[in-house]
Simulated assay, not measured.
Amino acid sequence: MEAHSYTLRDLPREERPRERLMQYGASSLSNAELLAILLRTGTRRESAVHMAQRMLRQIGGLRNLVDISIEEMTEMKGMGLAKAIQLKAGIELGRRLAQSRLNETITIRKPQDAADLLSEQMRYLQKEHFVCLFLNTKNHLIAQETLSMGSLNASIVHPREIFRAAIKCSSASVICAHNHPSGDPTPSAEDIGLTRRLVEAGEIIGIDVLDHLIIGDGSFISLKEQGLM
Score class of each variant (00 low, 15 high):
Ala89Lys: 13
Gly90Trp: 03
Gly90Glu: 06
Ile91Met: 05
Ile91Phe: 08
Glu92His: 10
Leu93Gly: 03
Leu93Arg: 10
Leu93Tyr: 11
Gly94Trp: 00
Arg95Thr: 10
Arg95Ala: 08
Arg95Ile: 03
Arg95Leu: 15
Arg96Glu: 12
Gln99Leu: 12
Ser100Gly: 13
Arg101Trp: 07
Arg101Thr: 13
Asn103Ser: 08
Ile106Ala: 06
Thr107Phe: 11
Ile108Asp: 04
Arg109Trp: 06
Arg109Met: 15
Arg109Thr: 13
Arg109Asn: 10
Lys110Ala: 14
Gln112Thr: 12
Gln112Asp: 13
Asp113Leu: 06
Asp113Val: 03
Asp113Thr: 02
Ala114Val: 08
Asp116Phe: 10
Leu117Cys: 02
Leu117Asp: 05
Leu118Gln: 01
Ser119Ile: 14
Glu120Met: 11
Glu120Asn: 15
Glu120Thr: 14
Glu120Pro: 08
Gln121Asn: 08
Met122Trp: 06
Met122Lys: 05
Arg123Thr: 05
Arg123Ser: 01
Tyr124Ser: 15
Gln126Pro: 00
Lys127Phe: 12
Glu128Gly: 00
Glu128Thr: 02
Phe130Glu: 04
Phe130Met: 06
Cys132His: 03
Cys132Asn: 10
Cys132Gln: 06
Cys132Gly: 14
Leu133Thr: 12
Leu135Val: 05
Asn136Leu: 05
Asn139Gln: 15
Asn139Ser: 14
Asn139His: 12
Leu141Ala: 06
Leu141His: 02
Ile142Lys: 07
Ala143His: 13
Ala143Gln: 01
Gln144Ile: 15
Glu145Cys: 09
Leu147Tyr: 05
Leu147Ile: 05
Ser148Ile: 03
Met149Tyr: 09
Met149His: 07
Gly150Tyr: 03
Ser151Val: 08
Ser151Arg: 10
Leu152Tyr: 14
Leu152Ser: 15
Ala154Ile: 08
Ala154Arg: 13
Ser155Thr: 12
Ile156Ala: 14
Ile156Pro: 04
Val157Gly: 04
Val157Phe: 00
Pro159Asp: 00
Pro159Val: 00
Arg160His: 12
Glu161Cys: 04
Ile162Val: 15
Arg164Cys: 03
Ala166Arg: 04
Ala166Leu: 04
Ile167Lys: 14
Lys168Phe: 12
Lys168Asp: 15
Lys168Ser: 13
Lys168Arg: 13
Cys169His: 07
Cys169Tyr: 14
Ser171Asp: 00
Ser171His: 03
Ala172Glu: 15
Cys176Arg: 01
Cys176Gly: 03
Cys176Ser: 02
Asn179Ser: 05
Asn179Ala: 04
Pro181Leu: 06
Ser182Asn: 10
Ser182Val: 05
Ser182Gly: 00
Ser182Ala: 11
Gly183Ala: 05
Asp184Cys: 11
Pro185Glu: 02
Thr186Trp: 02
Thr186Gly: 07
Thr186Val: 10
Thr186Lys: 00
Pro187Asp: 01
Ser188Tyr: 01
Ser188Phe: 02
Ser188Asn: 01
Ala189Trp: 06
Glu190His: 09
Glu190Asn: 10
Ile192His: 03
Ile192Asp: 00
